[in-house]
Amino acid sequence: MSLNAYLNKKVCIITVDGRTLTGNLMSCDQVTNLVLQDTIERIIRPADDEELSMEQSHGVYVVRGDNVVMCGLVDEELDKSIDWTKVRGEVIASTKHV
Rank of each mutant, 00 (worst) to 15 (best):
V16F: 04
M70Y: 08
V62I: 11
M1N: 04
E90G: 11
A47K: 09
N4Y: 05
R42S: 11
E77V: 10
V11Q: 01
R45H: 10
E90H: 07
S27W: 09
R88L: 03
M70H: 14
S94K: 13
C12A: 08
C12Q: 14
Q56P: 01
L3P: 00
E51Q: 12
V35E: 07
L7R: 07
C71M: 15
R42N: 13
N4K: 13
V68L: 04
L52S: 07
V91F: 13
G59D: 04
D75Y: 02
N4L: 06
C71T: 10
Y61N: 08
D48R: 05
V74D: 00
I43A: 11
E41H: 01
D75I: 13
Y61H: 13
L78Q: 09
R64W: 13
V98E: 12
H97M: 10
C12Y: 05
A93T: 11
T22F: 06
R42L: 14
I40Y: 05
K86M: 09
I44F: 00
E41Y: 01
V69W: 04
E41N: 07
C71P: 00
I82G: 05
T95C: 04
L34Y: 10
E55S: 15
N33G: 07
R45M: 12
V60E: 14
L36H: 06
K86I: 00
K86E: 06
V87Q: 09
D79A: 15
D75C: 10
H58S: 05
V98C: 06
L36W: 01
V69P: 00
E41C: 11
L34E: 07
N24Q: 06
L25S: 10
N24P: 02
L25T: 00
V16Y: 03
D17M: 05
G59S: 05
E76G: 03
H58Y: 14
T22Q: 10
V31L: 03
V69D: 14
G23P: 06
I82H: 02
T15F: 07
K86Q: 12
Q30C: 08
L78P: 02
E77D: 15
I43S: 08
L78S: 12
G72Q: 13
E41V: 08
G18V: 07
S53R: 04
E90R: 05
N24T: 15
V63C: 13
S53W: 01
D79T: 04
D75L: 15
N67C: 13
T15M: 02
A47L: 07
S2H: 02
D49I: 01
T15H: 03
D17P: 00
A5T: 11
N8V: 01
G65E: 05
E51I: 08
R88H: 06
N8Y: 03
H97F: 12
P46G: 02
Y61M: 10
A47G: 04
H58C: 04
S94T: 15
D79N: 14
N33L: 03
I82Q: 02
V62L: 14
T32K: 08
L7G: 12
I14S: 05
V68T: 12
D75W: 02
N4R: 11
V11C: 02
K10D: 04
W84H: 15
S57A: 12
I82W: 00
M1K: 11
I92T: 15
I82F: 02
L34V: 03
V98Q: 15
K86H: 03
G23S: 08
V68K: 01
